[in-house]
């Protein structure tokens, strides 16, 4: 019990610090502090109203999307279908970009095509479905759709550029690196 409380305090320490700052603000200038609390409250309610479905989707995707199978379908000669699948693995994922590198490593190990691995990275960083939903709820649907549409060609373009700019030897080196990890 004591450990648990300690753990919670440690986890939420920034929040408690900010809470203290806000209270200090309240005593320094009441209307300023009250306004800060009000802004926080309004934002919190707005965000909390969209978060439950976003996180439920995240969990469902994690459980139902068979990553191993999809990785198998992205090899050399998988063509447009392989690129599309790489895009889907990235978009249906969850987590920050650095969580994508180990999966990219697995893709390389299972000899996914190089450009498909880069497409996967691009999709992971910019078109994750649960995040798009959250983005639309805070930035507006128009902004999100526009950004999504602009990012699609960029994802492909970066993959093509990298496929072209790296020599065969350099790519082999990357594959060998993945083998060792």
């Amino acid at each position: 019990m004591k450990y648990k409380i300690k753990h919670i305090i440690k986890k939420y320490r920034f929040f408690f610090i900010l809470l203290t700052v806000n209270f200090a603000l309240l005593t320094y200038d009441f209307s300023l502090g009250a306004n800060a609390f009000k802004l926080t409250g309004v934002n919190l309610l707005e965000m909390l109203s969209i978060l439950p479905p976003v996180f439920i989707l995240l969990g469902l995707l994690d459980v139902w999307v068979d990553k191993a199978l999809m990785i198998k379908l992205t090899g050399e000669g998988s063509g447009l279908k392989g690129a599309l699948i790489a895009f889907l693995i990235g978009s249906l994922a969850a987590g920050p970009l650095y969580a994508a590198f180990p999966i990219a490593g697995v893709m390389l190990k299972k000899s996914s095509k190089f450009s498909n691995v880069i497409i996967f990275l691009g999709a992971w960083s910019t078109t994750k479905v649960p995040m798009l939903i959250f983005e639309a709820s805070s930035m507006g649907v128009k902004f999100t759709v526009l950004r999504f549409l602009l990012n699609l060609p960029v994802i492909v373009l970066i993959a093509v550029i990298m496929e072209k700019m790296l020599s065969k030897e350099e790519k082999t080196e990357i594959y060998e690196k993945a083998e060792k990890l």
Binding site: F14, L18, L32, T40, G59, D62, V63
Partner: peptide
């Protein structure tokens, strides 16, 4: 399992989430 994962990822982000909302409130009022 999916729902447990949902809850865990939510709980994971909650401290930073609350902090940033608070920070936004403070910054925007100043």
């Amino acid at each position: 399992i999916a729902l447990r994962k949902s809850w865990r990822s939510f709980e994971n982000i909650l401290p930073q989430f609350l902090s940033v909302l608070m920070l936004i409130g403070i910054i925007l009022s100043i």
